[in-house]
Simulated assay, not measured.
Amino acid sequence: MEKYKTEFKLKVVKSFLAGDGGAKLLARRWIVPEEKIRTWVNHYRLHGIDGLLPKRSTYSAQFKLQVLSHQDREQLSSRQVAAVYDVRNPNQVVVWRRNFDEGGVEAFSKGDQRRTNMKSERRSPAPPSTVITDSAQALREENEQLRAEVAYLKKLQALIRAKRSAAPTKRV
């Protein structure tokens, strides 16, 4: 994946915001994918210069579910919800959606467990009072899954209502 310097991103974004052209024209001028320009502009509008700075992050299962829930609730594209939550790669949201659709909440918690296991191997074990019991963790995961299911069902109901209201009425 090609990396772009922050100064270059800022120059392209400012050019877009100044009205020097749309994303398609600027993409040809600067030899950058059009999607990158749109992503940079969205991140800049929401987070300023910090939205263009390099970022390496790992995201918790709870954060991923929050992003997907917000996307469903507000009916946002992956690029839009990524910009809101400052996820630099909008395709990551697509991957989260696919993983969630295929494996539910467990698809997210597997990665978290793997990271937790790697961290705990490097550090000394936590005192017993801070260790979360398996049953409490299972309840939290079930709660997250139920919240995601409720958000999904709400979106489905909204789509059904929209379809019914958009149906043509029969005139006699």
Rank of each mutant, 00 (worst) to 15 (best):
S15W: 06
V12W: 07
A151Y: 12
G51E: 12
K64C: 08
F8I: 04
A158H: 10
E142N: 06
K64S: 03
R73V: 10
R38L: 13
L53T: 14
L53R: 15
A107T: 07
K9T: 06
Y44P: 01
R97E: 15
S109E: 14
Q71N: 07
R56Y: 15
W96F: 10
F108R: 02
T133Q: 05
K3W: 14
L159I: 13
L52S: 03
D101T: 14
E35P: 00
Q145T: 06
E2T: 06
R164A: 04
E35S: 13
G19T: 06
E74Q: 12
A138S: 08
I37R: 10
V105R: 01
K64Q: 14
K110M: 13
A82L: 00
G51W: 08
K110W: 15
S124V: 10
P33Y: 09
T6G: 05
A136F: 11
M1N: 03
H70L: 04
N42Y: 05
W96L: 02
S60A: 09
H47P: 06
R161K: 04
V131N: 09
L10G: 05
T6E: 12
T39S: 10
E144D: 06
E34H: 03
G111M: 11
R73K: 13
I49M: 02
Y59Q: 02
L53V: 07
N42A: 11
A107P: 11
V172P: 13
Q75K: 10
Q75G: 03
S165V: 11
G19N: 06
K9R: 10
V93F: 09
A83Q: 01
G21W: 12
R79G: 01
H43N: 08
T130S: 11
R161F: 07
S69Y: 06
T6H: 08
R56M: 13
L25N: 01
A18C: 00
R123S: 11
